[in-house]
Simulated assay, not measured.
Amino acid sequence: MPLRVLPTDIDLLRHLNNGRYLSLFDLGRWDLLTRTGLAGAMASHGWYAVVAAETITFRRSLELWQRFDLETRLLGHDDRAVYLEHRAVVDGEIYARAIIRARILRRSGGTVPHEELFAAVGRPEGVPDVEPWVHEWAAASALPSTKRPAPSDWS
């Protein structure tokens, strides 16, 4: 997706605010969901996607009015999540990259199994296995499930 840094996107240093990257990357996910037909299938089945974890790394700043491309790709999936990568790219150079762990949930409650998800929209061809470092990142950044306590204790 071609985008441009707007005045509402910048911080006091006149570059794209670090929190704004993740909001713009949401657009990339919606674009991917729409282009693949998943958005329509999700709406008709009462499903929705949530981000369970995300990590972003910055390489260069995007400045006010600068044009950039937002690239989004599916990294793969496991039995509980879908993994995506977003990149902010200028002239073929990566300025920022985010890794996203997302889950597909039912409005009526519970997680949508991937077999059911792919039955509704078809399984994308050429989806690679999730690389081990992605699983390591997901495990290292995980919080306890909502069914277990997660006390805020700094000790």
Rank of each mutant, 00 (worst) to 15 (best):
W65T: 13
T57W: 12
G109P: 14
L32I: 01
T146Q: 07
E136R: 13
D11G: 14
T146A: 10
D9F: 14
A139I: 08
L64G: 15
L6G: 07
V121E: 05
I10Y: 05
R35T: 02
R20V: 14
E125F: 03
I10M: 09
T8P: 06
G110R: 04
A140W: 09
E85M: 01
E93D: 06
R103V: 14
H135R: 09
A102C: 04
L12T: 12
A81L: 02
L84R: 06
L16G: 15
S145T: 14
S145Y: 06
S145E: 11
V51I: 10
A142G: 10
A53D: 05
A139G: 14
S145F: 11
N18Y: 14
H15E: 12
V112E: 09
D69R: 11
S108K: 07
E71N: 04
F58A: 07
L33D: 03
V5F: 13
R103Q: 09
L22K: 07
I100T: 09
W30V: 07
G109N: 12
P128W: 04
S23M: 09
P151G: 10
L75A: 08
A39E: 03
V121K: 01
L74H: 04
G28W: 05
L13K: 01
K147M: 06
W154Y: 13
A96R: 03
R97I: 03
G76F: 06
L64Y: 09
L105E: 06
D11W: 15
V134S: 04
Q66H: 12
R103G: 13
R60T: 10
S44Y: 01
P132K: 07
A81H: 04
A150C: 11
A53F: 01
R107W: 15
F118E: 03
G110Q: 05
I56Y: 08
E93H: 02
S108V: 03
G28S: 04
L64K: 06
W30D: 06
R60Y: 15
T72K: 10
W133A: 08
D69F: 00
L74W: 00
G28L: 07
L27I: 10
L75E: 11
E131V: 08
Y95W: 08
G37R: 00
D79K: 05
R87K: 04
H15T: 11
P2N: 09
D26A: 12
D11S: 14
H45S: 12
A52I: 05
P124T: 05
V134A: 04
L6A: 13
T55Y: 05
T34I: 04
V134T: 05
G122R: 03
S61D: 15
P113E: 05
V130T: 04
R148S: 12
D26F: 01
L13R: 05
R60L: 13
P124W: 08
G110L: 08
E85K: 00
E125Y: 07
A150N: 09
P151S: 08
W154N: 08
E63C: 15
G19C: 06
I104T: 07
L24A: 04
W30G: 01
S23R: 09
R67N: 12
A120R: 00
T55R: 12
R29K: 03
G76Q: 02
L6H: 15
L33G: 01
N18S: 12
T34N: 01
M1D: 10
D78F: 06
